[in-house]
């Protein structure tokens, strides 16, 4: 039952991809649809992405952080002769910046990953950095691939893009040369996907969106790589279209082929869906209160904007109840009898 359900989920994500591909093919076949896609939908998608992304960030930002709750992963700053760990347990802003940089650029927390197993009735925690390695590889490659695409969006091409492309294509494999990041991107995706499909626990907790996100990015990559290496397209037409976008003079590209429309549709689905999906982790990580706060709680007071009043039991109420007993035990008391005229002022 469970197995069938999992398989259906995985299959559905493939079907969703196929549906987008089919839609793209249909669009490629129809001139009007092509015009609508490249001249209208493109802007809508970008607007959805931009506004959606900013909206999500602001939405998070509006919710206050009532308490200072950093997860401390190293020695706190306490006595001067005890070596504190400013990155794992930052006391000041600099440390927080360092810690966040570690998380964002090096996936610090994932680097800690381990694998728990029971071996001969004893739990063992093996080092397990594959997720860190492939995850980092995937994300860095994706970033570089996106940056390389600036060659289609800038004229004259931003200088660093050329340098990046030649570095990326340093190994002369094929013509045009194979980009290492393309390979790494696909390798990362394959790892992440296979891991989800093959590890029973992960398959158990994975949702349709988890598979779909990976497959969608993979589809973008595969169509892009195909256009570079197997079914070349006229880049001139493509750049004319992309430059039309960024100069607000959209033009419909000439003959570019189904593959290009697929690539375009996958990208559009990806960025339009992004603000509504878990892919927002790219923005969310900056706001994570367990990571982006300094562990200086006792040194600097954190203010809760909605600090709600609660019912409290004052000392006076307490003494009222236990006064006799306290006097008997010789514990000092504030007043000796009940019915004290003076009322305690509650704060």
């Amino acid at each position: 039952m469970q197995e069938v359900k999992q398989r259906i989920t995985i299959l559905t994500s493939f079907l969703a991809i196929a549906a987008i591909a089919m839609l793209a093919a249909a669009i490629a076949a129809s001139k009007t649809a092509g015009i609508v896609l490249t001249m209208v939908v493109a802007y809508i998608v970008f607007a959805v992405f931009l506004i959606g992304f900013v909206y999500r960030i602001i939405r998070w930002a509006i919710s206050p952080v009532p308490f200072r709750i950093p997860t401390t992963c190293g020695q706190e700053k306490s006595l001067p002769w005890i070596k504190a760990n400013p990155l794992e347990c930052p006391f000041g802003n600099l440390g927080v910046i360092g810690r966040m940089a570690g998380e964002i650029f090096l996936f610090r927390s994932l680097f800690r990953n381990s694998k728990a197993e029971l071996v001969n009735g004893r739990p063992v925690y093996g080092s397990s950095k594959w997720l860190w390695f492939f995850g980092l590889m995937f994300h860095v490659s994706l970033l570089l691939v996106i940056l390389r695409h600036l060659r289609f969006f800038t004229e004259p091409v931003v200088p660093f893009v050329g340098a990046l492309s030649s570095l990326d294509g340093f190994l002369e494999i094929g013509i045009p040369t194979l980009y290492m990041t393309d390979t790494a991107l696909v390798a990362g995706l394959i790892f992440l996907f296979m891991r989800r499909v093959l590890v029973p626990q992960l398959r158990y907790l994975s949702l349709f969106t988890d598979y779909f996100a990976l497959l969608l990015i993979a589809s973008v990559a595969v169509t892009g790589i195909s256009m570079r290496h197997f079914f070349p397209v006229d880049l001139n037409e493509i750049k004319t279209m992309t430059m039309g976008w960024v100069t607000f003079t959209p033009v419909v590209p000439g003959k570019t082929g189904i593959l290009f429309y697929m690539h375009l549709c996958f990208v559009m689905v990806l960025i339009a869906w992004l603000p509504f999906s878990k892919l927002m982790h790219m923005g969310g990580i900056f706001l994570s209160p367990t990571r982006n706060m300094a562990n200086n709680n006792r040194a600097r007071r954190h203010v809760n904007p909605w600090n709600a009043p609660v019912r409290v039991r004052t000392y006076k109420e307490y003494e009222e109840e236990f006064r006799e007993q306290m006097i008997e035990a010789g514990i000092p008391v504030e007043s000796t009898g009940p019915g004290e005229a003076e009322k305690d002022k509650q704060d």
Partner: peptide
């Protein structure tokens, strides 16, 4: 080395 570390 991993096995040594985990004493397995």
């Amino acid at each position: 080395l991993s096995c040594t570390r985990n004493e397995i």
